[in-house]
Amino acid sequence: MNPLETRGPARILLWTALALALLLYGFPFLHLLLTSFKTPLEAIAVPPNVLPSVWTLENYVSALTRQGVDAALINSVVTALISTALSLVFAVPAAYAITRFRTPSGRVFILAALVTRMVPTIAVGAPLVEVMRNLGLTDTSFGLALAHTTISLPLSIWLMASFFEAVPDELSEAAQVDGCSRLQAMTRVVLPVVSGGLAVTAIFAFLASWNEFLFSLLLTSVRAQTTPVVIANFQSQFGLDWGGMTALAAVYSVPVIILTLFLQRHIVAGLTMGAVKG
């Protein structure tokens, strides 16, 4: 038992504090969900109500049938899937090389990847507009996925490197003695061992793309626009449709939250890994 754990009657006080903290922390999103079930008029009523007086799906119907919303949701899924695939394809071999062979070039590379993570997004996004134009990828999901990969790749390399780090070198050495090539030792022996880490990395890469806004704003206009930009446009394009906005925001967030709750153990591992190991 951790010596910082408290015993005795003080625990009741602590549980109360936790319940209060959670209520405060959860209330904003709860309010968003409750508002999404109000009528559009009640959503902006003065003074606001906490609970809907009439429960209705009106906001969901109006938000989801709005022009461009269905396309934006599909674009978000497609872009995030492409970007996740790209991140894994690039990150897995690189992270394996860095941890398995520990060459000086590997050390330089992982530090460079770390520095990439600290670059202001706008300094990459602005010139990418022209790069994408030259490649003929303006306003395409693939072009946007490439841009999102600049964010998720360094993160994926770091995550995968920490998962590979946990695998003893003897495993791949033994595989090679048994007649595997270097490549087979990686793909057939080590990779199956880190499949959990692969899943975590995939989730983080997916989320990085799913929630990204600035690149989407700069690089897409009509065809490939993703949902965050459409949500942001709700205010200007349609007046202040708070009801519809809360409904679309709920549609966009709830699947991700459910996914998180299912995979929480792995995600916590992924989030804390790099930081705690130092």
Binding site: L22, Y25, G26, P28, F29, H31, L32, T35, L207, W210, N211, F213, P228, V229, I231, A232, F234, Q235, W242, M245, T246, A249, Y252, S253, V256, I257, L259, T260, L261, Q264, I267, V268, L271
Partner: peptide, 18 residues
Amino acid sequence: FMYPLMIAPVVAGLLWRF
């Protein structure tokens, strides 16, 4: 406690503006 980490910043911004 972890769920806000998964929410898009755009959604969080709009939510708090609301």
